[in-house]
Amino acid sequence: MSQGLEHSLTSWSGQALKHQASWIDAIDARVRVVCSGLFALVVVLSSQFAPTLLGLIAAFVLVKSSKLNIKRTLRRVIAMDLFMLTLICILPFTTPGDVMFSVFGLAASWQGLSHALLITIKANAVLLVLFSLVATMSASTLGHALAHLKVPDKLVHLMLFMVRYLDVISQEYKKMRRAMQARAFVLRTNRHTWKSIGYLFGMLLIRSVERAERISDAMKCRGFCGRYYLNDDMKMGRIDIIFGVCVMCFLILLIGLNIDDLFK
């Protein structure tokens, strides 16, 4: 399991999740970022099952229509759900309420189970929407969209830099690991392993700092004066407005479902 995840992390260089072209790609990046943010806000703050379940269904619809690879997407979510499973096991015993069953004198309550399920649904819905709306654009597009949304310049620059150099540093890391493997180094649970990994990490730091100096010099040599220019002017089109309005209506429906339940 962790092996599969590790692979996807090490080979990431800021590209979007693999997917086929779909109508979601045509929507303005800013609209997608704002919509998923508002969606997360509404779903996480709902206190009832109906709106969160509707949110989860909507998230599935979005994943389907963004033509993400369903299997891969689910594999990413399942890593989190394994963690949630422990929560589902713990919460019924620690929440007071109507007794469902008892083990060794510990009572499990229905309230605890429903609380744990609610958290699971919310977390899954938010992640699926993020995958389908935001992760289907490349990280640099995301950076530009954030810049247009008035996120501080330095933060955006930091993100663009990081995305660019993740791949470079990761190759540096892999190179050193391979060199260690060639010298028959195997990871074990002992001090030798920790010391060697510490040296590896220290070396990685030193090499990256030296690389950062070279980058900085190269940029100054080409006249870098402290800012990037965002050349793409993002314009709102008809499809953006339609999509935005649809999402807003859906979110208002979810809020309405919550309020309705509050007054009962």
Partner: peptide, 18 residues
């Protein structure tokens, strides 16, 4: 550049599994 590169080093540290 320094902060960006260091941030990526720590991103990578989080997938060194011991």
């Amino acid at each position: 550049p320094l902060v960006g590169v260091l941030a990526s080093v720590f991103f990578i540290a989080s997938y060194i599994h011991l």
